[in-house]
């Protein structure tokens, strides 16, 4: 079966004026069954040619899975006609991954931390919290349909 994922990797020998040595883009349909393959592809290209600790690899896989899951389920409402775009900019010191969906966006400041005792029994609500805890910086666009996660390599 042909994979519905569309991967593009552009490498430059030296960092360009914006400091981006490698750009990895991936386009995937709004289907949660594509997430695992997408995570593996993006992780492999983000870490290629760099010494990465298991913890960096683990964190990258978890936050990618979270961001893609949010984009597909909450952003695009699993509408198969809508797509999710991943754009990873790689420099020697860090990985900058942006995940964008076609949804209306949301207000990230309105999402409560899921640590209150009465919330521990809830099955949902930990995704954004985990992303914030596992990466070095998180930014959203104004619309709230694009998350940018920055992970330092060391």
């Amino acid at each position: 079966m042909t994979s519905p994922l569309r991967l593009c990797v552009r490498r430059s020998a030296a960092p360009d004026p914006e400091g981006t040595a490698t750009l990895v883009t991936l386009r995937l349909p709004s289907d949660v069954s594509c997430i695992e393959e997408a995570v593996e592809l993006v992780t492999r290209h983000c870490l290629a040619g760099h010494v990465a600790t298991e913890t960096i690899r683990f964190r990258l896989r978890v936050v990618l899975s979270e961001a893609l899951s949010n984009a597909i389920v909450r952003g695009n409402r699993e509408d198969r006609t809508k797509w999710v775009e991943v754009r990873a900019e790689l420099v020697p010191e860090s990985i900058r991954v942006q995940v964008t969906d076609e949804g209306p966006g949301f207000d990230p400041s309105a999402i409560p931390e899921p640590l209150r005792p009465e919330q521990l029994d809830e099955a949902q609500g930990r995704g954004l919290f985990l992303i914030r805890k596992l990466v070095d910086a998180v930014q959203f666009n104004e619309q709230g349909n694009s998350i940018c996660m920055i992970l330092r390599r060391s």
């Binding site: 683990f58 979270e66 949902q124």
Partner: peptide, 17 residues
Amino acid sequence: TGYIDSSGLGALVSISK
């Protein structure tokens, strides 16, 4: 196991209940 996401954690909470 390689990794678990928040949906996986949520599934564990559900089955625990």
